[in-house]
């Protein structure tokens, strides 16, 4: 009799196992929804973006290398004029320039925060950096419009709108991200490397640049690429200061445009399904692929770094 009771209770699902099943179903559902959202975004952007090439028969090469962007008109051969090169160059120019300017500052700040004065770094600079990360991009853009653009106009001439202003604004925007990731990279260098270096008669400075920075090089590159990925995708702040001229940029102070700025400017003015709309989706597809490439680079660097 007693035995039967035990058997019955073992064969029945307990409250705890029901709870566990319930939890599994909930988390599985959540993951499924997230995956479905990501996949459908990719599918949607890709199908729209690729329609330019398959449906409207635009040559991919001409799209990437053409210099005239005017989707509503056609050229002498009757092909639509969707040359994205000016925006591609604009995007890469502001991204790389911002990264080049930001990197030394980020490394300098990170070295100060980890090696020279960790106390001030933790108490003062860390909160400041977190604050900078949290400022909305429209605020950066507004400051850029009212301070950076006039400054560039007075100093370098021109209208003030252009790649240079975009670079300045993006530089300030990505600096906190790159700095805090560089800080993490430097902090992950084991303390005993520093001790070994000092014990061999190295100065503090020699220890920093010959051991700490060298040992964390892959982490620093990851930080910079991450910052570039952010800069590449930034739309609003850049659009406010770059001038939005769809011309091949000839210098840093003439108005130019980026993939993001053309997209934000144009998306309200085209009809779904038309060529000019599809062409914008192609730009969106490019913007989707580039961060993917940046991510792959970051992972590749991470793997290489882990091997050492």
């Amino acid at each position: 009799m007693n035995n039967d009771e035990i058997r019955a209770s073992l064969l029945k699902r307990s409250r705890a196992s029901k709870n566990e099943l319930f939890g599994k179903i909930i988390s599985g559902l959540c993951i499924a929804i997230i995956v479905a959202v990501v996949v459908s975004i990719f599918y949607f952007v890709a199908s729209k973006g690729l329609a330019t090439f398959f449906h409207d028969k635009v040559n991919l090469w001409k799209f990437l290398t053409g210099t005239i962007w005017n989707p509503s008109t056609t050229d002498a051969q009757g092909h639509p004029q969707v040359g994205a090169l000016p925006m591609i160059i604009g995007s890469f120019a502001v991204t790389f320039l911002a990264a080049i300017v930001a990197t030394p500052f980020a490394i300098g700040a990170a070295v100060f925060m980890t090696e020279i004065s960790p106390r001030i770094g933790r108490k003062v600079l860390q909160p400041v950096i977190e604050l900078l990360v949290g400022i909305p991009s429209v605020v950066y853009g507004f400051i850029g419009l009212s301070v950076v653009v006039p400054f560039v106009r007075h100093t370098f001439g021109g209208s003030g709108f252009g790649i240079l202003s975009g670079t300045f604004v993006l530089f300030v925007m990505i600096l906190p991200t790159v700095t805090s990731m560089t800080v993490d990279a430097l902090n992950s260098v084991p303390r005993n490397y520093r001790e070994a270096s000092l014990a061999l008669g190295a100065t503090r400075w020699q220890t920093i640049y010959k051991v700490v920075l060298r040992a964390s090089v892959s982490g620093i590159i990851t930080a910079v690429v991450f910052g570039m990925s952010r800069a590449f995708g930034e739309a609003l702040a850049v659009q406010m200061v770059i001038g939005n001229a769809m011309l091949l940029p000839s210098n840093l102070i003439s108005p130019a445009s980026t993939l993001t700025s053309v997209l934000t400017m144009g998306m309200g003015n085209s009809v779904m399904g038309s060529l000019s709309n599809n062409a914008l989706w192609s730009l969106a597809l490019l913007l989707l692929i580039m961060p993917l490439i940046f991510n792959i680079i970051i992972r590749w660097i991470g793997k290489r770094g882990a091997m050492h």
Partner: peptide
């Protein structure tokens, strides 16, 4: 010169 408890060659 000094030698430490944990071997600490640089990652070079």
């Amino acid at each position: 010169g000094m030698l430490f408890q944990q071997p600490n060659p640089f990652p070079f």
